[in-house]
Design a protein around this nucleic acid. Structure first.
Length: 717
DNA sequence: TACATTGCGATCCGT
DNA sequence: TCGCAATGTA
């Protein structure tokens, strides 16, 4: 078997070790994905482990798909039997099987953040809390923190030390009860409930713990307490757990990830074997050295020495720019320049940033240059109003007790069921301890309703019954199309006829198309499974990496990826590190890890931009360079100050209304004759990208560079 | 009860 | 800048 040919000795050891708990400390670019894929292949083909006895946890759904492909490539089609996916998708799978033991129907709904918010608002309202001290968001954030640490309301009550805490216990309890009444779960529950079930019911624990002879977990540094506990429980019987991770790349502390899970692995599993992968195959020597110099400033880390046999490569270019627009222009210039001079494809580039809001100015300049790009995150498909509406119909069809979704669509499109009507049925339902759905089936009992209100509700209830009937006999895509039609949603949009409405119609069509694709791909194309997939989908899962386009994403989304050329935008104090992290040493270290993750995505080149100021929603903010950039030794950096004019001529030599267009031929005293590849800005800010005949490409501020225009059909000045 | 308007508040990262 | 919540109007 050729399984080991391409592996170095440490990798090979990690792939073949069968002596119990194994921790693989895998530095950036050290080939951990390959190790995981080969290990799975080895277990199946070389260690007689059946595919269904393997559990492989990946960080994204996309990574699970790619892992399956790689395994398939190594040992053929056995991957489909392996339980492979994110913690959330694997737990959802377990819960579908075990839901009843927890008092849940298997058709439970998964509430996303928005649904949670609506539910919590109702909870706070019911408890009579409206003082503004506790907002739905703050309550949910605290509850999420508690859940990821497996703290129940009862446990919290034991330790509650203030009246405030006690009141919070009530909120937590009421929220849990509300979820239960809706036969719904939040994201944290997906992990927490299986853990509780396994702790409470030995037969459940035994079923899974004996089944999974081999457990593999990727990105172990970003597991939280609940996930850790799940791993501990599941691996308790066979004790074969292989955790792969890098403490330097732990970037989800804010979401409850506990870096001590990896730092203490050897305490938790005293007989654990530890293998270090310290040879990097990804980055140049320069990039690797620069990133190591930065991360060494973190105190809470396992010491490690990464090395590489790769070439030395270019220095990192740090560019100081005037503002976010100049930053975008610099990035687009560089991309065109490198494409032109080195034949790079668009797909070789990624632009990374700390916050999604930063993408706008970069997108603007890419669009102006007609540079193709794909953006990860931002306005999400499944969060668009029309998609959420249709999905809400589906959720109500699948789970009648889901009142959050039901209330979302009860009057969308308008069908004469207004606030007053809704309030009356809510009151009736809560006074009798019924769900809204129950009440819809006994409308004649509600005496407070007017005849008109009752009629509207009856029509709605009839429609729901019809949709449920249809659901029994149709595939998911057929059902979606039927829902959109029968609910009046399509007619409602068509009537509007606006550009926006048309785009919404197109999105609904795309949803149907997506459902057809789901149907072909899925082994179990049920409505419940579809809703589960839609609920657990991640931005990065939707990333289309086959298009020749520049990628734009947050540093968080870049985890696990690599690109020949990486831009890190907005390397400024307050942005990276983010201002919310400046007070706390641990959070600052996490920001440093984030910067480290950004640097180590690069194979060939890194460009870092810092703006001297930015326009935010508050107005103009002067910015200073990131401390993390200052931590890179100067010998690895080339610095370029683009806030200063290129020098040459005084203001009045050239008019400020000069225009030069793409394709123009120009002459420069130093570099000779060249052609304009791209231009941006206007007047004094007109910037040119000029490729000179000597092969040099330069970025110039046209107004200041001593240029002579030789030939420009459209240009004038 | 439905729809338009205004105004405000929030914004880090995301299952 | 945007989305949502409260307010106003038909």
């Amino acid at each position: 078997m050729d399984l080991f040919r391409d592996l170095n000795p440490s990798q090979r050891e990690a792939v073949t070790y069968l002596g119990g708990p194994l921790l693989v400390l895998a530095g950036a670019g050290s080939g951990k994905t390959r190790v995981l894929a080969h290990r799975i292949a080895f277990l199946v083909a070389g260690a007689s482990v059946a595919p269904y006895e393997i559990l492989a946890v990946t960080f994204t759904n996309k990574a699970a798909g790619e892992m399956a492909d790689r395994v398939r490539g190594l040992v053929g089609d056995v991957a489909s039997g392996i339980w492979m996916g994110t913690f959330h998708s694997i737990c959802a799978r377990i819960l579908r099987i075990e839901a009843k033991k927890y008092g849940l129907m298997p058709n439970f709904t998964i509430y996303d953040e928005h649904d949670q918010h609506l539910l919590m608002k109702q909870v706070l309202k019911d408890l009579g809390i409206s003082d503004g001290c506790i907002t739905p968001a703050s309550a949910l954030s605290r509850i999420s923190g508690l859940k990821s640490n497996l703290v129940t309301p009862d446990e919290l009550e034991e330790y509650a030390s203030s009246p405030y805490d006690l009141r919070f216990v009530e909120i937590y309890r009421a929220y849990e009860k509300a979820l239960h009444n809706n036969n719904a779960l939040d994201f944290d529950d997906l992990i927490v409930i299986p853990v509780r079930l396994m702790k409470r019911l030995p037969e459940v624990l035994q079923r899974y713990a004996t089944r999974f002879k081999q457990i593999l977990i990727d990105e172990y540094q970003d597991t939280n307490k609940a996930q850790y506990e799940l791993v501990r429980l599941l691996s308790g019987y066979h004790r074969n757990v292989c955790a792969v991770g890098d403490d330097d790349q732990s970037i989800y502390r804010w979401r409850g990830a506990d870096i001590t899970n990896i730092l203490n692995f050897e305490n938790d599993f005293p007989d654990a074997k530890v293998i270090r992968l310290e040879r990097s195959y990804r980055s140049t020597k320069t990039i690797l050295a620069a990133s190591q110099a930065v991360i060494k400033n973190n105190r809470k880390r396992k010491p490690k020495e990464l090395w590489t046999e790769n070439e030395v490569g270019n220095k990192l270019l740090v560019a100081m720019v005037g503002d976010e627009q100049a930053e975008g222009i610099f990035i687009s210039d560089k991309i065109e320049e490198l494409r032109e001079s080195q034949g790079h494809a668009y797909a070789d580039f990624v632009v990374l940033y700390r916050t999604n809001a930063q993408s706008r100015s970069i997108e603007d300049s890419l669009r102006r240059r007609a540079i193709p790009y794909v953006i990860v995150g931002g306005v999400k498909f499944y969060e668009r109003k029309e998609i959420k509406d249709i999905i809400a119909y589906l959720k109500v069809i699948a789970n009648p007790r889901d009142s959050v979704s039901l209330l979302r669509i009860i009057n969308v499109p308008n069908r004469g069921i207004g606030d007053v009507t809704i309030r009356r049925i809510k009151e009736f339902a809560s006074s009798r301890g019924l769900s809204i759905s129950d009440v819809l089936n006994s409308l004649t009992d509600i005496e407070t309703l007017t005849t008109g209100q009752r009629q509207s509700l009856m029509k709605f209830a009839d429609m729901l019954a019809e949709l449920r009937q249809k659901a029994k006999a149709s595939s998911v895509p057929e059902l979606i199309a039927f829902v959109a039609e029968r609910s009046g949603y399509l007619a409602h949009l068509k009537k509007q006829g606006t550009v926006e409405a048309i785009s919404r119609l197109e999105n609904i069509e795309e949803l149907v198309a997506g459902a057809y694709e789901f149907e072909e791909r899925s082994q179990e194309p049920s409505l419940a499974k579809f809703l589960e997939e839609v609920s657990l989908i991640m931005d990065i899962d939707l990333w289309d990496d086959r298009r020749d386009a520049v990628s734009l994403m947050t540093l968080h989304n870049a985890k696990g990826l690599e690109f020949p050329i990486v831009f890190i935008a907005g390397a400024e104090e307050g942005l990276l590190p983010h201002h919310t992290s400046l007070e706390d040493e641990d959070e600052l270290e996490e920001e440093r890890r984030l910067f480290y993750v950004g640097l180590t995505r690069a194979k060939k080149m890194v460009f870092i931009t810092m703006a001297v100021g930015r326009r935010t929603f508050q107005g103009w903010m002067p910015q200073t360079g990131s401390r993390f950039v200052a931590e890179i030794p100067v010998e690895f950096i080339e610095f370029e100050d683009l806030t200063q004019p290129a020098g040459g001529m005084s203001d009045d030599t050239w008019g400020s209304d000069m225009v030069i267009t793409k394709g123009a031929r120009v002459k420069h005293p130093d570099w000779g004759v060249g052609r304009v590849i791209a231009c941006d800005g206007y007047g004094k800010h007109l910037r040119l990208l000029v490729r000179f005949e000597g092969g040099i490409t330069k970025r110039l501020l046209a107004h200041y560079a001593n240029l002579e225009i030789l030939d420009d059909a459209d240009g004038f000045y």
